[in-house]
Nucleic acid binder design. Structure first.
Length: 269
DNA sequence: ATTATGTCCTGCCAGC
DNA sequence: TGCTGGCAGGACATAA
């Protein structure tokens, strides 16, 4: 790598030693591998560390010829000594970022800050039965658990709603009272949704969601629940409902995914 | 210990 | 026309 540039300090806020240190650590390095777990990506260098990236919700990693004009929201770039394309980190809302992290662990090294991130359903070593057990051991609502990256990673608001729709479960169901087969169904559904979305190039609502070549995916056209408020359910025709969820929205079919009864725990005396 | 909530950020769009 | 407020949302710090 010939050079690294940071154009917005917030994009490297996770790098504790600061932008200057990050650049100094990267200059002259060679990238030897590209890895991913859940929503984290990292590029391994020959020095047993890695450039760790998270796209947040508006981040993009773009492979661009140096002659391509800089994007308005270009936050950082990696320039390579071979004269080939650059790697550009573009992020409108700056929830994402880059940092350089040591790789830790023997068999399957991970950047240190993401050791707590669970394997995702696309991972060949993903253990479905272990995830089912972990899910049912939680004491929370199902959708909250699906979004917990320490339990299963890679699931965000969109794929959580799609997985719940496929499994015909409401996100407010308690994890602790889920039958084993229901828990397995929703986790399998999550893996299937992610695989299908990947095959279609991802879920792109607008120009923010693109691959390294700047192209959008088409999975948004296959969404059955997320963003489909008032449209008929693809299974039963009932209008999809939108409900508030953690200052956001959840979408579900009122008929296929009935809201659970409010089973209050024992009322206090 | 586990679980829940507030916070960060910018651009877009509906409504007035 | 131009402003305001709501919305989008991943992960972490902090609180309970």
């Amino acid at each position: 790598m010939a050079d690294a540039q940071v154009l917005h300090p917030r994009a490297v806020r996770r790098h504790a030693a600061g932008p200057t240190d990050l650049v100094a650590r990267l200059r002259g390095r060679t990238i030897t591998a590209a890895c991913r777990r859940g929503k984290y990506l990292w590029l391994v260098t020959e020095c047993a560390d890695a450039v760790l990236a998270h796209l947040g919700m508006s981040g993009q990693l773009l492979v661009s010829e140096p002659s391509v004009p800089a994007h308005k929201h270009l936050r950082a770039r990696l320039v390579f000594a071979d004269g080939g394309p650059e790697l550009r980190f573009v992020d409108q809302r700056t929830f994402g970022g880059l940092s350089v992290e040591p790789l830790v662990g023997g068999q399957d090294p991970l950047p240190a800050p993401i050791r707590h991130i669970a394997r995702d359903p696309m991972d060949p070593a993903f253990d479905l039965e272990a995830a089912v057990t972990s899910l049912r051991a939680r004491r929370t609502e199902l959708k909250r658990a699906l979004l917990d990256q320490t339990l299963v990673s890679g699931i965000g608001n969109i794929y959580a709603d799609e997985a719940l729709w496929r499994a015909r479960l409401h996100g407010a169901r308690q994890t602790a009272t889920l039958q084993h087969r229901a828990a397995r169904a929703v986790l399998c559904a999550a893996g299937e949704v992610m695989a299908e979305a990947l095959a279609q190039g991802g879920t792109s609502f607008d120009a923010l969601y693109v691959n390294v070549n700047g192209n959008s995916g088409y999975f948004d056209r296959s969404l059955k629940a997320y963003g489909q408020a008032d449209w008929p359910c693809a299974r039963c025709g009932t209008p999809i409902r939108r409900e508030p969820f953690m200052n956001r929205s959840s979408y579900s079919c009122p008929r296929c995914q009935p809201r659970p009864r409010n089973r209050k725990p024992n009322p206090l005396p």
